[in-house]
Design a protein around this nucleic acid. Structure first.
Lengths: 149, 149
DNA sequence: TAATTGATGCAATAATGTTGCATTTTCTTG
DNA sequence: CAAGAAAATGCAACATTATTGCATCAATTA
């Protein structure tokens, strides 16, 4: 990344962002700060395509690799979908390369298209004969924003 | 046209297969019979890639279109995944173009890689402020086959 | 500040998915 | 059962999405 002007817009969360990257053993670069900031601001699932649209100064390949390293280091997690487009969401604080907290509830709004993380516990489920180590709940419907109108 | 030799290999399920296609208003062709048979035999989620590998006599595009029409007509359903590869599974009997029974539990085995449909009811889940119309449960772990060894 | 390690951009390539059109096959109906 | 209507297939071209190798550059470490 070549412009410095950009950096000024990040505001007071700047230190938080740097700390998250540091905590997960990721080098702090202008691009990564911008991308993580974007995820935190949007508060919804984002795809590579979203990033490409938002950060046209960054190379496509860099975005792929950023998503990958963020995921490996526990900053982001992949969100299951039946569309074939992988999207990513910000992990809980507790995630690290070693321990990913993978129990998630994701809600996809069929009105606005937004996918968000729901902060509720995933229901228990036993499957006889199977060892379940990870549960993901995928919900579709109308989100609270869209329900109001 | 039916080639008789080919037909013999399908065994006694042959009529079932044709009936499923007929019931869902899909024209009966040799390719479709083979594909549906394959899904029923494998009893696990299959991707376009799997079909391409298995049916190299059929065109890639035909496979895409077959998966699409099977899905539209309620023979198959898409299975959510975080890999970016869409896979498909056989629907319950009750599915039709009008009414898809979308409540599914899918289990992905981290040992053999197989994804299968689990025939259990999806747990209830209320999200305050949200209207939930569809629930999918995605489990990972070790399947019963792999657990035994 | 120099050395090390990792990040980035670029080019090339691979894999995956889509569209239009000519041809063939299935199904319908007289 | 033959002929026409409707749908499926194959092929070619194209579009999109993802991956890899390598040279260069930037961030961390000592």
């Amino acid at each position: 990344m070549r412009s410095t002007i950009h950096t000024l817009n990040f505001g007071r969360k700047m230190e938080d962002i740097r700390n998250i990257l540091k905590k997960h053993r990721l080098r702090i670069t202008e691009g990564r700060i911008g991308i993580l900031q974007y995820f935190l601001d949007e508060k919804k699932a984002l795809s590579h395509r979203d990033l490409e649209f938002r950060f046209n100064e960054l190379d496509r390949v860099t975005l792929y690799r950023t998503l990958q390293s963020f995921t490996e280091k526990g900053v982001l997690h992949k969100i299951p979908s039946d569309t074939g487009n992988v999207t990513y969401g910000v992990c809980f604080d507790t995630c690290s390369p070693q321990v990913h907290q993978h129990e998630h509830i994701h809600f996809e709004c069929m009105s606005c298209g937004k996918t968000e993380c729901i902060d509720l516990d995933v229901p228990e489920l036993e499957v006889p004969g199977y060892r379940v180590t990870e549960k993901n709940f995928l919900l579709k419907g109308i989100c609270s924003d869209c329900s109001e109108n």
